[in-house]
Each structure stands twice: as structure tokens, then as C-alpha cells.
Design a protein around this nucleic acid. Sequence first.
DNA 1: TTCATTTTTTAACATTTGTAAAATGTTGCC
DNA 2: GGCAACATTTTACAAATGTTAAAAAATGAA
Lengths: 188, 188
Amino acid sequence: MYSLLKNIEIFKPLSNEALERLAAVSKRVEHQKGAILIYADKIEPYFYILESGIARAYSDGENQQITFWFGQSGAVLFSFNSYINNSPGYENIELLENCSLIQIRLTDLFSLYDQHLEIANWGRKIAEQELIATERRLIDRAFKGAAERYQDFLDQSPELIKRVALKHIASYLGVTQVTLSRIRAAHK
Amino acid sequence: MYSLLKNIEIFKPLSNEALERLAAVSKRVEHQKGAILIYADKIEPYFYILESGIARAYSDGENQQITFWFGQSGAVLFSFNSYINNSPGYENIELLENCSLIQIRLTDLFSLYDQHLEIANWGRKIAEQELIATERRLIDRAFKGAAERYQDFLDQSPELIKRVALKHIASYLGVTQVTLSRIRAAHK
DNA sequence: TTCATTTTTTAACATTTGTAAAATGTTGCC
DNA sequence: GGCAACATTTTACAAATGTTAAAAAATGAA
């Protein structure tokens, strides 16, 4: 029953046959705002696609918590280390709103990667898209000041500004909350 | 004739059959120190694996050049945007020493991805490993000061310190050359 | 609404890092 | 060796950002 997946952007390039194979191991789940779907230092067995709601990934430091990823509808959500190296991760993933998600067990997904050419290439493209977005951010940190990064964030993710606490956005942008406040004050 | 590839780390997980398919589209090339293998703003048709020598990727800004990647023996080397989105990239890749490389035409590689399950999954893992390394660096920028990042670089890439100009290492670490000099002076 | 809690802003000051320019060191070539 | 080109360090000063603490504003629950 692939109708579950058919309308989600990330699945659109797939043939009906591939979709059915994925649908057979997919399950829709709902979780509440505040739920932690992925814990750092644990091997997490699931891969998720966010259908609705928003989430953030963060790591805990000694006296701070750094948010380094936001996910919106259509985003893939998983523990990088669990998925890639079968080892405990560094990120916690917290839902910032009530969310609806597609859940796939990693062992099922890996088994499809080993059986199904089209799905293997779909998985390749997921990693590639995450890669290019992550490197883009690393380079932007070098070339752009904090104020410009904030403006870019406003332009590219206008919904997130409304729905996410500024303290999370500050650490995502690589500045303290105080600095972000200063940027916003200067902006008016 | 897959002996060309057999001893290179990145090819080791592959079966002989997959290696032969890759070897059939691979070619060993040599380039001199200073050569630019990948140009920003161009769609680059090749994918390389570095056999010997070192290289760096950099982007040009208005009054600066930022190095954001170093490759050593075994590294994969390509224009992310050309490879992933078939569009011009943002990085130049320069050889910092005379290098020996394996060259594969992207169209040949993509064609193998579409035909060969094992090679598709090999390509998936390449992207995944790059992804996790890149995100790791982004997070380290948030949690570690410049001095600690320098120390980590020393620990993890002792050869590069000897062979690469400090100005390139400075921008790789996300600081100016003056700051790196100060860190090195304090370090003694 | 009212109270308690949390988030955001503001202020004052400290620290880090950047900028520009000069001084020093290094490399390769004639 | 000696010169030229380039890399690295040092210095003085400027700008950006961090830290701490407090005030103001927003949010959520009773």
C-alpha cells in the first residue's frame, strides 16, 4: 500500500515498484512536541521522514547546547553515526511541534539497499543532498558575517523564524543569543 | 585489468567483478604541483581518487581565499555540484604536490551506478563518509576554540602540517593567519 | 486574569579575533 | 653568496563577539 508515501516529496523520483517495497517496511507514527526521537550516545534503530511539524538536532556541551540542524516537512531524520557507522551518535533530535512521521527500521532499509538498485541510488542521493547542504553551511560560515547569515536564514526559512525559539536559531547560526538579539535590533 | 585499483583503500570493499567494471572506465593520470584539477563555476566531468600527493579545495571571496578541504592519498576528489547536481561548483581544487590519481568520467560512473547494485552502494557510502566528516567539522567549530581545533589538526593530520602552507591551514581552521600564528606562539 | 516560568532584550565590560603594516624567515634561482 | 619572491610572525590598534547580570516581554497554566 504505497499511497502512504506517494505524496511525500522525497519519494517522488521512485517507481511504483520501489515505492511498494519501501511502503512495506514503512509505518506512519505521531509524536508529541518535546519528544526526543534520537538520543546521542545511543545506536538508534530508526530512520524517519518528517511529514508535518518541525524538529531540531542538537549536541550537548559543557555549558551549552548547540542546535545544528532544523527539519521541516519532507526532511529526513536519523542519527548519522547509527545510519552510517552503526555506532552511537552525537546528536539528539527533538520535535519542536507535534509531528507526523514515516518510520523505517534501519535494518529493513539496509536490506533494501542491498537488494534494490533503484532504492540504493535513492539512498545515495539522500546522502549527497545532505552533504552538499552541510558543506554549503561550513563555507558560508567563512564568507559571511553573522548578520548576513541571519538574513539568509530569514530568506530561506521564513516559517522557522516564526516557529522556533531564537536561542535555537542563534546557535544554528553560530552566535550567542545576545549577538543574535543585537543583530535583530540593528536590523529594524 | 583491475590491478590498477586493487591496492587503493577505497576500492577494497568491492568484489573483483565490481572492480573490473570500475577499472574499465578508470585511467591513471599524473599532474604537477600547482595544477588546478577542478574549477569553480564550471561543470567538471571527472571524478578522481588521489593515489599520492596532496590537494586542497578552496573558494575565492572578495579579498580572501578559503581552503575548506585537504585530500591525501586515498581521498576522493570532485566538484560537489557537478557530481551531485550537474551544475557548476563553488570549489577550486589545486594540487599542492605532484600527484598520481585515478580518473573516472562522471558519465561513466553514473552509468555504473544505474547498472550495478554493488557500485551504487559503494557510491552511497562515499557520500555518507564525506557527509559525516563535514558535519563533524561544522559541530567542532561550535564546541571547540581555534587553539583546540589546531591541536586536533596536528593530532589527526601530522603530515599535512609539514607539507601545507600555514595560510591554507589557517583558513581551513576558520581563523586568519595572524590568529594561527598567535596560537602557535602560545603553544610553545 | 494572574502568577510563575521561560524567552528575549539590553547594558556594561572583558576577551577574542580581525586588519594593516612592518619585520623576519625561507626558498629557489642566477 | 646574494637577490627576489613568498611565507610567517609580530605589533598596534580596531571591530566583533562573548560573558554576566538584570530588566522587559512573552508564554502558559491555574
